[in-house]
Simulated scan of single mutants.
Amino acid sequence: MNVWRKPLPVVLRENVMDKIGASPTWRWTGYENSFVILDGQIMQSVSGGSHWGGGLFISAMDQARFGYMTLRKGNWNGVQVISPQWIEKSRVPSPVQPNYGFMNYFLNTDKKEIPAAPEKAFFHLGAGTNMVYVDEENDLVVVTRWIKNDKKADLIKLILESLPK
């Protein structure tokens, strides 16, 4: 917000969602108590998680579009939406939690999260285990909704096994 001087949902819409052709149905909601005044305008400053009353509410198709953009290292149809350096930084394991990267990237470090998947695969994960699985090796994006967390590895294994060899 401080960089763009605009509310976060506007920044997200203008700089990402519109560029990837997302539907107009997604919405970003901040916490009830996260308002700040910036340039005389009241804005919500923290999204939080959707299960705590804030966050990004988004369709599976829009999740797939976002996943495809990250699969293509931030590129959408020849337009660099997010810099490839940002995407790479997001995929570096954190020292405290090696299966977690920067900005909501969950990593398959040492194949601990999804043993059947390539170690370089990653996923975006939200409330209800809404997951966007991204696998460059198999040129694959998978969106799951409301799957049990302990079943995500089994599902991805079945999908990977179903791919032609």
Rank of each mutant, 00 (worst) to 15 (best):
M1K: 12
P7R: 09
L8C: 02
L8E: 02
P9L: 08
V10H: 12
V11K: 03
L12H: 14
V16P: 01
M17D: 00
M17I: 01
D18V: 07
D18K: 07
K19Q: 14
I20D: 00
G21Y: 11
P24K: 10
W26G: 06
W26C: 06
W28I: 12
Y31F: 11
E32A: 15
F35N: 13
V36N: 11
L38W: 01
G40V: 05
G40C: 11
S50Q: 00
G53Y: 05
G53L: 02
G54N: 00
G55R: 11
F57D: 06
F57K: 13
F57G: 00
I58D: 08
I58R: 03
D62T: 05
D62S: 01
Q63Y: 07
R65H: 04
F66T: 11
G67C: 06
M69S: 01
T70M: 14
K73F: 05
K73R: 15
I82R: 03
Q85D: 15
Q85A: 14
I87W: 12
S90A: 12
S94E: 09
P95D: 05
V96S: 10
V96N: 12
Q97Y: 10
N99K: 06
G101N: 10
M103H: 13
N104V: 09
N104C: 10
L107W: 00
D110I: 08
P115C: 03
A116W: 01
A116G: 05
A116I: 01
P118C: 07
E119D: 09
K120H: 11
K120C: 08
A121S: 10
L125H: 08
A127D: 13
G128E: 08
T129D: 13
M131K: 02
V132Y: 06
E136R: 07
E137C: 02
N138S: 08
N138H: 15
N138C: 06
V141R: 05
V142G: 00
T144K: 02
K148G: 10
K148T: 01
K148H: 09
K152G: 14
L155P: 00
L155G: 00
L155F: 10
I156D: 03
I156M: 08
S162W: 09
S162D: 13
